[in-house]
């Protein structure tokens, strides 16, 4: 019984189809017609799908694999700062030591890929007037403190920036603009406050290196209540007209600048 007999197998397959045909004939007429229609529709759809779906769709995931090749084929405009050094090593050297060491060449000179392809045909220029530098260096109160800023309308309005500043090696500011050049927002707050005539150096001592490497060499800050009390304690002499408190009893658990903002004390 368990032996495989091809004849029985064939006849049982034949029997299966015969029964299927009998079944089909017993179907209501409506169902037959609808089945034929359905078969036609399904066949048409499957054919259309085979023809219309891109061959490499779904190769790596539910997308067209060659789409990635098309995206990667997009031409490059910005060549990247490394390639500039190959020819302009002198400029690169100057720049490497200065404040602009992390500013890519193409930030000012624009996309350079075409120039690297054909040095003669495509020449790059940097802005020679006053349109370029203020994009970064115009005074905006929202800019982080410590970033060098000017008000271009009043900062030598008719001179081009490169007349005074070498863009590849800009110099730290000279007096009288020492602190306010970079700490513009603080300077402006202080200017309208009662501390307007208190010099920055009265409270902060800045090491010389601060100008060259501002984040590594920080200016000092007062270290205790006694510093402010020098003027604001009611025992302080020769300071008439200044708001004064009793240093010993006035909120003794805090240092002054935990509540008062020294650059813009609340009594404006």
């Amino acid at each position: 019984m368990n032996e495989f007999d091809p004849n029985t197998a064939l006849s049982s397959i034949g029997g299966f189809f015969r029964r299927l045909r009998e079944r089909w004939q017993r179907f209501p007429e409506q169902v037959k017609r609808l089945t034929v229609l359905l078969a036609v529709v399904v066949f048409a759809l499957v054919t259309a799908r085979t023809m219309l779906v891109p061959a490499d769709f779904g190769k790596y995931g539910h997308y067209r694999a060659s789409a990635v090749d098309e995206i990667v084929a997009q031409p490059i405009q910005y060549a990247g700062h490394e390639i500039c050094t190959e020819c302009h090593d002198d400029v690169a050297e100057t720049k490497a030591a200065g404040f602009h060491k992390n500013v890519g060449c193409e930030v000012c000179h624009g996309p350079a890929a075409a120039h690297t392809e054909d040095v003669e045909a495509v020449q790059l220029l940097a802005p020679r007037g006053r349109e370029g530098c203020p994009l970064c260096h115009e005074y905006l109160p929202s800019r982080p403190t410590g970033f060098p800023q000017i008000v271009s309308a009043s900062h030598n309005p008719v001179k081009p920036c490169i007349g005074c500043h070498e863009a590849h090696d800009p110099k730290p500011p000279e007096t009288p603009k020492e602190c306010s050049a970079c700490h513009a927002t603080i300077a402006r707050s202080k200017a309208i406050s009662h501390h307007a005539y208190v010099a920055c150096t009265r409270c902060h001592e800045a090491p010389d290196q601060h100008k060259l490497d501002p984040r590594s060499f920080r200016p000092s800050k007062p270290d205790g209540r006694e510093f402010c009390a020098g003027c604001h304690d009611d025992g302080a002499s020769g300071k008439e007209g200044i708001p004064q408190i009793d240093q010993a009893s006035h909120e003794e658990r805090y240092v002054c600048w935990q509540c008062h903002y020294p650059h813009l004390p609340e009594a404006q």
Binding site: V68, I71, A73, P75, I76, Y78, G80, G104, V107
Partner: peptide, 23 residues
Amino acid sequence: CTFCYHRIVKGLAPACVEACPTQ
């Protein structure tokens, strides 16, 4: 944004990163 996919597959940084002066 594609993270400049055509650049990063070639070892370059995206254009915005290349152009950012303050890192």
